[in-house]
Deep mutational scan, measured.
Amino acid sequence: DYYEVLGLQRYASPEDIKKAYHKVALKWHPDKNPENKEEAERKFKEVAEAYEVLSNDEKRDIYD
């Protein structure tokens, strides 16, 4: 669930989505996790995908 990936509720505002994305993206950035790079890359891609969908009103409506 994209909301879960970003740690958000379904009623999150666009500002909340952006803030959550930056927080979680920093947490899972591969450069910040050199000891667990493969998992970090996978999680970072999930976070980016979730943000791409939830930050676009049209894609978010379809997802919801």
Score class of each variant (00 low, 15 high):
5 V>E: 05
11 Y>Q: 14
64 D>S: 05
9 Q>Y: 07
36 N>Q: 08
42 R>N: 07
45 K>V: 09
7 G>F: 02
29 H>D: 09
51 Y>E: 01
16 D>I: 01
2 Y>K: 07
13 S>F: 02
58 E>D: 12
51 Y>S: 02
27 K>G: 09
51 Y>K: 06
46 E>I: 11
1 D>M: 00
59 K>I: 04
59 K>C: 06
30 P>N: 05
33 N>S: 10
61 D>V: 13
39 E>S: 07
45 K>R: 13
35 E>P: 08
39 E>C: 05
43 K>A: 09
15 E>R: 02
46 E>Y: 07
13 S>L: 05
48 A>R: 14
56 N>F: 02
35 E>V: 07
39 E>G: 05
11 Y>F: 11
58 E>T: 15
24 V>E: 14
10 R>M: 05
9 Q>M: 07
55 S>C: 13
14 P>W: 01
33 N>V: 06
44 F>D: 01
29 H>V: 06
47 V>M: 06
62 I>K: 15
45 K>N: 05
23 K>E: 15
15 E>C: 06
64 D>T: 10
56 N>S: 12
58 E>H: 09
35 E>N: 12
38 E>T: 11
17 I>P: 01
32 K>L: 08
9 Q>D: 08
61 D>M: 14
35 E>I: 08
30 P>A: 09
63 Y>L: 04
14 P>V: 12
57 D>Y: 08
36 N>H: 12
30 P>W: 02
56 N>T: 09
54 L>H: 05
53 V>W: 08
3 Y>R: 02
33 N>K: 07
57 D>E: 11
57 D>N: 11
13 S>V: 03
16 D>L: 02
51 Y>W: 09
64 D>Y: 02
58 E>Q: 15
53 V>L: 06
40 A>M: 03
19 K>R: 12
32 K>A: 10
20 A>K: 04
5 V>N: 03
27 K>T: 15
15 E>W: 02
19 K>W: 09
23 K>R: 14
19 K>A: 14
39 E>A: 09
3 Y>G: 02
37 K>L: 11
30 P>Q: 09
33 N>A: 07
48 A>D: 05
26 L>H: 12
20 A>M: 04
4 E>I: 01
39 E>T: 10
23 K>Q: 15
57 D>L: 14
47 V>G: 05
42 R>M: 10
36 N>F: 10
58 E>L: 10
44 F>H: 05
6 L>I: 02
48 A>N: 14
9 Q>E: 14
13 S>N: 06
63 Y>P: 05
2 Y>V: 00
52 E>M: 07
48 A>C: 14
54 L>F: 00
